[in-house]
Simulated assay, not measured.
Amino acid sequence: MKNNTSGTWDITRRPLTYNMNELASVAGYPGDQFLTAPFDRASDYLKSLAREHLIHLQTQRNLADDAEIARHRLSIPFCDDMRPSNMLIDLETLQITTILDFEFTNAMPAKFTYDPPWWLLLSGPEVWLKCCVMDEFLALYKPRIEQFLRALEKVESEKVLEVEQPVGLSLSARIRDLWRTGRFWFDYAARKSFDVDVIYWAALHKDSAGIEMLDDKVRTEMEPFTKIKMEQLKAYKEECTARFSSNN
């Protein structure tokens, strides 16, 4: 985004998100495969995320660790690195005084700002779901989301007395709805290339639901593609074992 002489902001390039930075620096994602133009609508951005997930799956050899591949079924200013470790507070008043690390802030679909905060347990849901089942995560997260929403509702009720409020659902009501319906999980998985699989199997998978939504072309490609990914994973593990042995 750039500021022009009229005092407004223009969006001239595609987003650079934290997730894109991780893909390029950690996963070897081909940089020339990132789209370069800005998006005209939220649906275009979500389609680009689906495209990123599939290219990531194709290029990282050890990404699929079994033959059940989730991301073929999972088809804002907004900062996707907003969390307590990027905030400074006044120790006496507990008020936030500074927000840090805005380098990945972009114009994103507005609905992302209505998602429940992923950082309420400090680590993201995917960290917890890799070491415990969903029920255990929910037992920890639900009290925190309720505490957060009560505090937000208190602030909203105070603001009603100060200024005229816009028509529509309040932020707290929108967050409750996204948490209640499970839409939060879809939005979160869409933005987390390395964690799509664990979130899909823990929160989004319903028996065989999703397979019937794939078109004939994708269904035909699934079996040979899965075979390729399993061969890549085997070769990757053999290389790791060989390197470990040679270093010892």
Rank of each mutant, 00 (worst) to 15 (best):
P224C: 04
L233W: 14
S6L: 01
L178Y: 06
D80A: 08
K227P: 00
E22W: 01
D32C: 02
E231P: 08
E238S: 11
A203E: 01
A67W: 14
E153T: 01
I69P: 10
G182F: 12
E103Q: 15
S48E: 15
P77V: 00
L161P: 08
G28K: 06
Q58T: 03
N19T: 06
K237E: 15
Y236D: 15
F34G: 10
R243I: 11
C79Q: 02
M87L: 15
V26Q: 06
L74I: 11
R13N: 14
F137W: 11
T220F: 13
Q58M: 09
L122N: 12
Y45C: 09
Y141Q: 02
P84H: 06
S123K: 14
P84T: 02
P77A: 05
V26S: 05
N62K: 10
H72N: 03
Q60W: 10
G28E: 04
D207H: 10
E153S: 07
W179I: 00
A37G: 01
L140I: 00
S172Y: 11
L94P: 08
Q33T: 02
V218C: 11
M20Q: 15
F102W: 15
F39T: 03
S246I: 00
P125V: 03
R191C: 07
R219Y: 05
L63F: 12
I175C: 07
P125A: 10
T17M: 07
L91E: 15
I199M: 10
F102V: 01
L204C: 08
L49Q: 14
L57E: 12
N19S: 14
C132Q: 13
P224F: 06
L122K: 11
G168M: 02
A235Q: 14
C240L: 15
A70K: 03
N4P: 01
K159Y: 09
E103N: 12
